[in-house]
Design a protein around this nucleic acid. Sequence first.
DNA 1: ACAAATTAATCAGCGCACTGAGTATTTCGG
DNA 2: CCGAAATACTCAGTGCGCTGATTAATTTGT
Lengths: 154, 154
Amino acid sequence: MAAVDLTTHPGHLARRLQQAHYLLWNTMVSEETTSPQFAVLNALVAEPGLDQRTVGERVGLDRSTIAEVISRLDRRGLLDKVRDPQDGRRFLLRPTDDGLRVHRKLSVRTARMNQVFLAPLSAGEQAVFFDLIQRVADAAEGLRNPADPSVATN
Amino acid sequence: MAAVDLTTHPGHLARRLQQAHYLLWNTMVSEETTSPQFAVLNALVAEPGLDQRTVGERVGLDRSTIAEVISRLDRRGLLDKVRDPQDGRRFLLRPTDDGLRVHRKLSVRTARMNQVFLAPLSAGEQAVFFDLIQRVADAAEGLRNPADPSVATN
DNA sequence: ACAAATTAATCAGCGCACTGAGTATTTCGG
DNA sequence: CCGAAATACTCAGTGCGCTGATTAATTTGT
């Protein structure tokens, strides 16, 4: 009786959206390479030589998760991981030739998948969709690190 | 150079949105009870006596995941799980008094959290937000089970 | 120059999410 | 009535995602 309507809960909708995407990715893009793995590969194609932490920042993964994703890509030979001679704490990462090939192939398939995924929306609605989600996600991420000195907390 | 802009990838946005929500939930709602656990509890408040599979359907969790979520709620004494005397394969689930208490408390906090989460959007935008996400998620879930006999596949 | 603080990465532990395979129970067909 | 199919649940295995604690390297403050 006191139950709540979950269709008005953004968190629940976000989870359902992500699950739906996960399934579609598996059937239309790749069963071996996951969406987060592709995101990491993509970040390294854009900026080869990044370290682990920075890649995580770029794609929105925390230190532990990024370490696992990278270790899987490394095991499959899709990226190179070498100690930074300038700073022995860091590992520098860059895609291998295989990594570049996989990235190219998956880029095409991902574009196709996105069309199918967004097909229920008109072009205008798609733009609104991106804008609204991004604003909510950005704001929530902002709540998490209120410590940026350039945007004082008061 | 051939890298892709992830801000136009709904899957990537969905993941970021869900992560942002996860963090906010942890700080504003509960550290013990997760959002999927609340969803299950909520489904059982609405319809006490459901079996596991049906609860999973209601909240959008597959057979394996729902089993784990339920076993955690059971361990914490928030629900009762008894064999259906009519059908020995099923377990019938209902919230305990403790489960009802937790559900009530978390309902209030969840409402507050949703307000904070959606604060960057106007009331009109929030309605659009729900509508668009739901349409995309519904459509993608529909691609997954085209086998409903009442809506023939051809 | 050297102790203290900071930073990058790892590890252990928990929870969500999916698939494929296996077990037990019920239902269906002949 | 009884063997085959369907159904509910469990189990093993993989991957994403978070926190808190630890280790190793660099930077900072005297």
